[in-house]
Design a protein around this nucleic acid. Structure first.
Lengths: 220, 220
DNA sequence: CAAAGCCTTAAGCTTTCTTTAAGCTTCAGA
DNA sequence: TCTGAAGCTTAAAGAAAGCTTAAGGCTTTG
């Protein structure tokens, strides 16, 4: 899971990001409202966490702007205790959840997991496509170990059956939108994944659609 | 989507064009008002982005000229902050939207998408004509794969049922008006498309209307 | 602090798609 | 019915995108 976190207090942000990473949640951080809005239009985020009091553009402004544009990414609002009224406003305007500051990071993690219907950590989690079984908790594919990036990529492919995933999108989603990652990375990992899918003799393979991306298909 | 961008500052134009391409928007660029007007009469554009301050002919002049000729292509005006009055003028004269300079490219993309009623997130992935189903998310026609150009051409045909599409128009729309593409390209791809439509045994076929273009029809 | 594992980088190779061109067919008007 | 223009079809050359491999570097772990 990758989220966007819009928060101007660097000290708080650092702490929260650190905890989220431990919970296996990748975070892109924006420290003002404008950057936040720019980044929030990207489809790579599974959720957006918005502080309300922000420089340049408030969290409520961002929420309104992205909903106006038809972007449906789940949003969690963060409000200081005094801003109770904003809380209600935020909710009615299309936020999916809210948290009062100060909050426990574990609470935030729980709500992010809830929004993405993801089981709490230690549990075994398996996702399937045809004869492929990706275990994301111990990072194995039908028993054989995958590296982190291999597993991340395969997870996106399995969760979006039939829809080609662009290299661009995978780079942003997995390497992070700020990174200067190259498209060749994706090609390299597709090669690794294909090799591993061959060693487990899967019925499935990764199909390339030129200029469009990759998707899982079953062999004929 | 293909747009015309009329802007004299090469440096800015390059940056914006780069971002638009990433958002899957094809751009033709004119660097002065005269070229801009010349190009803007073409029906291939889904939108025109007009800077106001331009050499030879201002953005407002262009807007007026094309509207006078009955051309209804959506127009977005770009105005420097000082030109607030022009903003209003531009709008009342028939522009569809405006943006103050400096602007964020993401904002421009959002407005272009809004003008073309295109959901920025999950685009419409299937379009239909009779028994034809073109899936643009994995680029298939009733299950069989198409190349990029094949899909681009078929998309135009399907989206304009009953209206013959000129070779000229298809060349400009798909290959770009600056390219030195030949009409034979279109003929070649029509041939490829016909072959594929035959292999899926479609009820439809591509009809040639001499000197006028191509359209989809159902066989009798 | 060394080893192992993973990620990044880059180069050369392969595949796929696009362009080009030539010869053929169809069509409309004289 | 003849003729030139328009359109069709193919195959091969060329360009672009993608694949694979291996080496080097970084991080993590024992």
């Amino acid at each position: 899971m990758r989220i966007l976190y819009v928060e101007d207090e660097k000290y708080l942000a650092d702490a929260v990001i650190h905890m989220l990473k431990k919970a296996d949640i990748a975070v892109d951080w924006a420290d003002d409202g404008e950057k936040g809005l720019d980044m929030s239009v990207s489809p790579i985020y599974d959720a957006i966490v918005l502080d309300i009091m922000l420089p340049k553009l408030s969290g409520l402004d961002i929420l309104k702007a992205i909903r106006d544009r038809g972007i449906k990414t789940p949003v969690i609002m963060l409000s200081a205790l005094a801003e109770v009224e904003d809380k209600i406003k935020g909710l009615t305007m299309g936020a999916d959840d809210y948290l009062s500051k100060p909050f426990k990071t574990s609470e935030l993690i729980a709500r992010l997991n809830a929004l993405n219907r993801r089981a709490p950590l230690q549990e075994e989690t398996e996702i399937h496509f045809e004869d492929l079984c990706l275990n994301t908790s111990n990072r194995t594919l039908n028993g054989i170990p995958l590296t982190e990036k291999e597993a991340d990529i395969l997870e996106v492919l399995i969760k979006n059956p039939g829809i080609a995933q662009k290299k661009e999108y995978l780079l942003a989603k997995i390497w992070g939108s700020e990174s200067i990652a190259e498209e060749n990375y994706v090609e390299v990992y597709m090669s690794y994944l294909r090799k591993k899918m061959k060693t487990i003799k899967s019925r499935c393979s990764i199909k390339t659609i030129r200029n469009l991306g990759y998707k899982l298909v079953t062999k004929d």
